[in-house]
């Protein structure tokens, strides 16, 4: 049974902290994980947890309903993504595997999701795009933000965002046309 996280539901959960946190996490964690994965973050799950550790204590103070909450969540995710990219650009970080810290008991859900998403193919698709074009598309399609919200998060004007998404689509179309022409 699923229930849509609406403005009314948010108001109803106000004051019940544990339930509110769980609802926000369930509603947005998958999207944040998808956004971070699409942006090529080295450890999307860990960064997702960091994002919600920062977001959840301030959920009560967010105004603007679900839309405002969405903007806030993805602005934090965007900032963490930028941090991760800077970290990667400085020095690729390699973590040694520590079994004690690996809390994953089953990878079946992820494997199913990955098979369904076919991330390798999508990532190859996204690799066609420039970084800011990729950012615009993930923010608009994966995060489901409007042009205004994406422009606010990226710190650009609405016209610049529209221009970026137009060029991104053109680049994707050319790529898909070339692929169709070559593949058969």
């Amino acid at each position: 049974m699923t229930d849509a996280l609406t403005d009314a539901a948010l108001r109803a959960l106000r004051g019940r902290e544990a339930e509110l946190f769980s609802a926000v996490y369930q509603a947005f964690a998958g999207q944040v994980l998808g956004y971070l994965t699409g942006k090529g973050v080295s450890d999307p799950e860990a960064v997702t947890q960091e994002v919600f550790l920062a977001v959840l204590p301030r959920v009560e103070s967010i105004t603007g309903g679900v839309s405002g909450l969405r903007t806030f969540v993805f602005s934090v995710a965007h900032a963490r993504m930028v941090d991760d990219h800077r970290r990667q650009s400085r020095a690729p970080e390699h973590h040694e595997f520590e079994p004690d810290r690996d809390t994953r008991q089953s990878s079946s859900a992820e494997a199913e999701a990955m098979e369904r998403v076919a991330p390798g193919e999508v990532m190859a698709l996204l690799d066609v795009l420039r970084e800011d074009q990729r950012e615009v598309l993930t923010l608009r399609i994966v995060a489901g933000l409007t042009v205004d919200q994406a422009a606010e998060i990226m710190g650009k004007s609405q016209g610049a965002v529209k221009q970026l998404q137009r060029r991104a689509l053109n680049a994707l179309r050319e790529h898909s046309v070339v692929k169709e022409y070559v593949a058969p």
């Binding site: 964690a29 999207q31 998808g34 956004y35 699409g38 947890q49 998403v117």
Partner: peptide, 13 residues
Amino acid sequence: ALESFASMPAPVP
């Protein structure tokens, strides 16, 4: 296909 990223399951906290 890009949209399917949004339906990823929430990671284990």
